[in-house]
Design a protein around this nucleic acid. Structure first.
Lengths: 334, 334
DNA sequence: CTGAAAGCGCTTACAG
DNA sequence: CTGAAAGCGCTTACAG
């Protein structure tokens, strides 16, 4: 199977490589008959342009990197997938880069910038902290999806997210209004700067609303995996068996917690109510079905692509879009 | 933030671009002092080579595409992730391409061949059918992971898989030995050529072993998603409520089925036993924990990379590796 | 051990 | 509407 180059096509079609290139790029300034002849030859040869050569020359064309942190996270996966759908009729090309949860997405961005001459970024599931400062010298549009970047100090950073604080407040409010006072929170470190810390603040808001104070000893730092959550939950409930409700910051964590409770002889929701976050597909089918804060995947994806292309193609200023999330009350909360 | 090229580095370091290129590629024929000087300049400039330029020239270097079919499948995800781990000390470079379940992985392969001059392929979660014939003219090594390609007619196709037929036979055998005779099978179409049809044969083997015949009216074609499985199960059990056990061809399907049974007022495993397949993480934490055939992700990944690099670097003939799977009997089967 | 030069497969002013 | 030529940033014989 021979690999044809633009030169082969030009020879076969009896035109110059310039003309072939024009046809390839759907430029208008080609004679219709010429175009058809070239297209016929390209089709016959199953010609596909060499992406490396194109990328090398076409420095002005836009290439956006979607960097997803955490490949095992079904919510972020779904988000990235949805973004790609909305990418179809963009002028820019998109590439997706999945990186490990422990990897540094900003170093990755820098590498892609050099390696592939990327001209824009979408960060999915990122935290905005001091590491992000390496991008501050970069005059490239970037959007953060799922985290609000309004206070990031990055000159060209936009963001698309839900109101994490308000939603957590609502969710925790439901637990409190149903009489739970010994409520645990399962999240990551309480460090500032990302959506998780906003959720934590939301929980405290809810306690405040109810004239109560959140008992910090019921805050559990956990890894966001089934096993991590399971282990954390077993340890925690051995210590604080009187806890009657858990607000988790991810459906994954909620499922691990529920399984742990089950194994400790506690029923969900009869003995303990558990709240998830994200609204994953699995949560809908879990037993019990998860009560959760459902993030609008489609809208987050669409808005992210839109905000980025607006900046890229129309020189629009970065904006911070907040989309509506939905509280889903299902079986895991009594 | 200026993007430095090899030319900039050469000028800064007072050497030729040839020498910079040599340092960049860790060639031995460079004076130690020169090398260090160049390395110092590269570090100072945060130099990263342009992947396009490299890919354009370095036609002889190997680039392997890992094509994963189905981005929402956690088992295949884990497999691809594990492969990347084993890729670290390969001479070849690897790229991963996730494609939709409905997309054609062989057309994708062809595109990558042209676009990126790929020199080898790993197909993860692929079916081998007539579509694969487009690759028959290709003198490039390829390995199929999770499906046995021994009878593929593709001259350079290797494969790494479990013995799907034997494992399905064992699993179904467990159901039969526990007294279940009205057993349903939830799979995809029964078409030949992939691991799923082998599993189906294994089920029939088990019936044969027991002196019984599988009742074809209990074969259910389903999509491999929670929703697909759920809907199929509700429809099926409305028709055949006397079924007491289900062998599914994927943990995802098993979970959908269990949720459906639960909603129809049937308990698992008390009323109906359900077998999964793959051995996913979620299955371990599902309620009830899934009985399943656990595929050895690490070994599948490691062997796949090994088989491919053997073909690529050492001109070894394609081989068909069968790795050991494990039957996990957990809560979903009585 | 080092460098000048050709060339990978494209795109893009520029000229006609 | 079309083509010759330069050049993108590298690598790689080849010569020294």
């Amino acid at each position: 199977m021979k690999i044809y180059t633009i030169k082969d096509i030009a020879r076969e079609a009896g035109v110059s490589v310039t003309t072939v290139s024009r046809v390839l790029n759907h430029r208008p300034d080609v004679n219709q008959a010429t175009r058809e002849k070239v297209e016929r030859v390209m089709a016959a040869c199953h010609f596909v342009g060499n992406a490396n050569a194109r990328g090398l020359k076409q420095v002005d064309s836009d290439l956006v990197a979607i960097i997803i942190r955490g490949h095992q996270n079904p919510f972020l996966n779904a988000l990235a997938e949805a973004m790609l759908q909305h990418t179809k009729d963009c002028k820019a090309a998109f590439l997706t880069e999945y990186i490990d949860e422990k990897a540094d997405e900003f170093q990755t961005a820098l590498r892609l910038l050099h390696e592939k001459r990327v001209t824009g970024f979408i960060f999915v599931g990122s935290r905005i902290d001091e590491r992000a400062q390496v991008l501050s010298g970069l005059d490239l549009p970037m959007v953060f999806t799922t985290v609000n970047a309004a206070h990031s100090n990055l000159p060209r950073a936009a963001s698309v997210s839900i109101d994490d604080r308000a939603m957590a407040r609502e969710a925790a409010g439901v637990l409190l209004s149903r009489g739970h006072t010994r409520v645990a929170v399962f999240g990551a470190s309480r460090a500032d700067g990302d959506s998780l810390s906003q959720r934590y603040k939301g929980v405290k808001d809810a306690f405040h609303d109810a004239g109560l104070t959140f008992d910090e000893s019921r805050y559990v730092e956990t890894r966001f995996s089934l096993k991590g959550a399971y282990d954390s939950a077993r340890a925690f409930f051995a210590e604080k068996p009187d806890t009657t409700a858990v607000f988790t910051m991810s459906d994954i964590v909620a499922m691990g917690v529920i399984r742990a409770l089950q194994d400790m002889g506690k029923r969900v929701p009869e003995d303990v109510s558990v709240f998830g976050f994200d609204g994953t597909e699995t949560g809908k089918y879990f037993i019990p079905r998860l009560s959760t804060v459902e993030q609008p995947v489609e809208e987050l994806a669409e808005q992210s692509v839109l905000v980025l292309t607006d900046m890229l193609e129309h020189q629009v200023a970065p904006r911070h879009v907040v989309v509506e999330a939905t509280l889903r009350l299902r079986e895991s909360v009594k």
